[in-house]
Simulated scan of single mutants.
Amino acid sequence: MADEDRVRADSRAGGEQSDMPASHRWRAVNAGQTRSTLRRIARARQRRRWAVEGLAVLACLAALGTYLATRSGPEPGDDLAGRSGVPAGATRPSGFPAAEGRTGDVGPATPGLRPRQRPPSPDPTPSASAPAAPPPSTAPTLSVSRAEAPGEIDLTAVGSRDWMHWGLHGGTSSVRKRGGSGEIVDGGGKGARVGWDGNQELVSWRDGTPERSESDSSNGVYTCGAGNGFSLAIAGSGEPRTVQVYAGTWMARGRLDAWLSTGGPVSKVRLEDPYTSQSAQFTIRFQLPKGARLLLSWTVEKAFTPHCGNVGLQAVAVR
């Protein structure tokens, strides 16, 4: 039955083709082949276009991936991840410049800062501050030394705070610095004071009272006999002070004792000449609080002649 249907179909097709002119049959056959070829060519061209477009897309994707990888990587000079706690590939926040002299990022960006402006430094912690310098010492101090007396003594120059001179008009006369501090106190002493104008040292001043000025005075005072001498005191002011004592001996041993009213040991300095006179400049440096005093005693420790072995005193200056 199926074979018979196929025979009838073929015969109809053959009959229809046999009725068509030969030129028409050739055009029909050729047209069918041309359309088929064109479809194949079009499909091939479309496949090639898709391939080219696909390659272009892949190239774009590859370029985009390279660009993104470059942007997300660490910038030149940045430390590796882990030094500052910033993960690898993270970028520095916008507007946060790196601190000069440091490596890596130093913290998050601070809002409101202009470009290249650094955030303010934190206040130092109390533990990092340097310890305060201790206040200057006000503990009492004392030192005594002896040197040869100068040939000329300018009391105005060496006694910037105070000075005092004895013997200008006899054993009981004295001259003080006009407008001085009054730190020198004459405490008297044992033995009678006698004026003397034959000292080798010449004393001058320009700011005295009651004698305003004097030039090249050789005057002074002295007292004879062992145990006799002069007592002086210098008031403390809380500041370091220097005292100059201009004194001498004649055929005797003199001893200068210096001590502080606040207590402590006594400093002793001696000057001796058994045959003639001897002069010296004693320098005393001390520091005492107000109300305390430096105490001085210049006495005959030993006389080498019964004819008035003595100690003499010309002047005292404080600066």
Rank of each mutant, 00 (worst) to 15 (best):
A51W: 13
T91D: 13
R39W: 02
A44V: 05
G77V: 04
G65C: 10
A81N: 01
R47I: 06
G73R: 06
A51F: 13
L58K: 05
D10V: 09
A51N: 14
Q46L: 06
G85W: 11
D10S: 11
S11M: 10
V52E: 15
G82M: 10
V52G: 11
V52N: 11
A22R: 13
D5S: 12
V52H: 14
E53W: 12
A44M: 13
S18V: 00
L64S: 15
V7F: 07
T91F: 05
R48Q: 04
D19M: 02
A81D: 12
R35Y: 06
V29G: 09
A62L: 14
E16M: 04
P76F: 12
D19Y: 00
S18F: 05
R12Q: 01
Q33G: 03
G14P: 00
L64K: 00
S23L: 13
G14M: 06
D10H: 07
S23Q: 15
G14K: 03
R35N: 05
A31G: 15
L68V: 08
E75Y: 04
A59H: 03
P74R: 12
A28G: 11
L68C: 08
G89M: 07
L68K: 03
L64G: 15
V57F: 11
A31W: 11
A81R: 03
R27S: 15
A31N: 15
S36M: 03
A22S: 12
R49A: 13
A88M: 05
G85P: 11
A51I: 09
G85F: 12
G15E: 05
V57D: 11
R47E: 04
D5G: 10
G65A: 14
N30W: 03
R12I: 00
E53H: 13
D78I: 00
A56M: 13
A59L: 15
L68Y: 06
T70I: 10
G82L: 13
G73A: 12
T34K: 15
L64R: 04
A31H: 08
R83H: 09
A88K: 05
R8Q: 06
R39I: 05
G54A: 14
R25D: 07
I41F: 06
P21S: 13
A51Y: 14
S84R: 07
I41V: 07
A59K: 02
R48C: 08
L64Q: 10
A69T: 12
P76A: 15
L61E: 09
T91G: 14
S18C: 02
R83F: 13
R8D: 04
R71H: 07
D19T: 02
Y67I: 10
R27N: 15
C60T: 10
T70Y: 15
G14E: 03
S23A: 14
D78H: 02
V29D: 01
D79T: 05
R40S: 14
G77F: 01
V7Q: 12
A9C: 01
R49K: 09
D19R: 01
A22W: 09
Q33W: 08
R92G: 00
G32L: 14
E53N: 14
A81Q: 07
D78G: 00
G77W: 01
A63K: 08
D79A: 02
S72E: 04
N30T: 11
Q46I: 06
S72R: 05
N30H: 08
